[in-house]
């Protein structure tokens, strides 16, 4: 599955409940709002909106937009 950055940004915003600006390189280190609560909100939103599900390993490893894009591409 391929998904545009704009679509991802919309999902991130809804999950974080905050109008963040998403870059193709954004990660936990660059996004202050990406804490563990928002991380789980993000998983919940991604699964709901895209109809995908994540394994435990994926949930743990997902810490940046490039990784997310790669994970989604494989689904």
């Amino acid at each position: 599955m391929t998904i545009s950055l704009a679509q991802l940004q919309e999902i991130f915003r809804s999950a974080f409940n905050e109008d963040i600006d998403l870059l193709p390189t954004s990660s936990k280190d660059t996004l202050e709002a990406w804490d563990s609560i928002n991380h789980l909100q993000l998983i919940v939103e991604l699964e709901d909106r895209l109809g995908v599900s994540f394994t435990k390993e994926e949930i743990e490893q997902l810490d940046s937009v490039p990784k997310l894009t790669a994970m989604l591409a494989a689904k």
Binding site: S36, H39, L40, I43, V44, E45, E47, D48, S53, F54, T55, K56, I59, E60
Partner: peptide
């Protein structure tokens, strides 16, 4: 239920459940 999330973050629910 989303047990993976539950076991990692103690939050075992999907969006519809929430």
């Amino acid at each position: 239920y989303q047990y993976n999330l539950g076991h990692l973050y103690q939050m075992p629910y999907t969006k519809p459940a929430v």
